[in-house]
Computed example of a mutant assay.
Amino acid sequence: MDHRPTRTTPFHRTRVPLRALILALVVAFVPVAALAASSGQGTSQGNQAKDSKGMTVTLSPSSRTVDQGQSVTFTVAATSTGGFAGPVTFAVAGLPAGATASQSPSLVNLTSGSTAQVTLTVATATTTPATKTDFTIKASSGTTMSNTAPGQLQVLEVKRNFGVSGSVVGLLAPGVSRGVDLQINNTNNKSIAVTNLSVQISQVVRTPAAVAANLPCTAADYHIAQYTGSYPLTVEPGTSSLSRLNVPPGKWPQLKMLDTAQLQDGCKGATLKLTYSGTGQAN
């Protein structure tokens, strides 16, 4: 008796449901895994939002250029994040030497989700180095700190010309000193702070008679004491002088003819040509 038909029929009937069951399980597990991944991502974002409670700071514009001795302004915006609320102050670091910073207003109160702006004024001095400097500003409220916003300040050297001249008050004679009342001509439309003045003898012009007689007279027969007054001298636009600036005559440069044992007849009637120089800074 042949038993093969009886064995074949049950075997094929049991394999088909087994494959269907495996596929059904795979389909069922995929959505569950995706749901778990999605749930974990949402939790991470929630923690991140909770941890970001505080404030952010931006600076506009990020870079400014200013002349030495002048001021420039920036706009600082502080924004509440994560529901932060409270009083906020600002601090600037990294400014060049001689430069100072101030904010108006100096303090702002942030409410949840709000933004407040302050004006940052950076004032430079006439001695501030002419260079490009990176600085930073950040906000704080108790132990809560903002990000550090970068900024850049470029300070330009101010070059302005002014003239210096002078005249000796009175005649010279051996052993006699005369003051030189220096005149300062400021052709700029702003005041200048003069920080140095000097006088030199550039030439001694003898009379024709002294030249004919071959009588010598040189700069070695004279001595110059330089200006001893205080600096800086603030000179407004226009022409001024040491006397107009109320500098005592004893502080002026002094020109003296030396009283030597050698014959100085060649210096009688001689004319001295003087050169003047000065430096300063624009205000």
Score class of each variant (00 low, 15 high):
S243K: 10
D181M: 08
D134M: 03
N246Q: 14
I192K: 04
P232N: 02
A261P: 04
Q103N: 13
L171I: 04
C267I: 02
G179P: 10
Q103F: 15
D181L: 07
S39G: 15
R64I: 10
G269N: 09
P129T: 09
V247F: 01
L272C: 05
G83P: 10
T275A: 15
I137T: 13
N189F: 10
Q48F: 11
P174S: 00
Q117W: 03
T56C: 08
G69Q: 00
V92T: 15
N188K: 00
S191T: 09
G278K: 13
Q70C: 07
N185G: 14
H3L: 13
N185D: 14
R7E: 13
W252S: 02
Q45P: 01
V108S: 01
N185M: 08
P96W: 05
G238H: 02
N189C: 01
P249R: 08
T207H: 07
D51F: 10
V27W: 01
G278V: 06
E236M: 14
T79M: 12
G238N: 00
A77K: 15
E157C: 04
D181W: 07
T43K: 11
G250R: 11
K273V: 11
T133G: 04
A210L: 02
S140G: 12
N47S: 11
V122H: 12
K159W: 05
Q254F: 04
L59A: 02
T9L: 14
R244M: 07
V27C: 12
V88R: 12
P61T: 09
L23R: 05
A219T: 12
I224G: 04
Q281S: 14
V199G: 00
P253E: 08
F135L: 03
L258N: 11
L120M: 12
T128I: 09
T228D: 06
R15A: 14
G179L: 07
L95S: 03
A28S: 12
A125P: 02
T89C: 03
Q262N: 11
A220G: 15
S140A: 14
G82Y: 09
G83K: 06
S60W: 03
A125Q: 10
R19M: 14
G54K: 07
P31K: 01
V27T: 13
T73C: 01
P248V: 04
G94F: 03
T131F: 00
S114E: 02
A282V: 15
S202T: 14
F11R: 10
Y227I: 06
T79S: 15
A36V: 12
I201V: 03
V16D: 08
R19D: 06
Q183M: 06
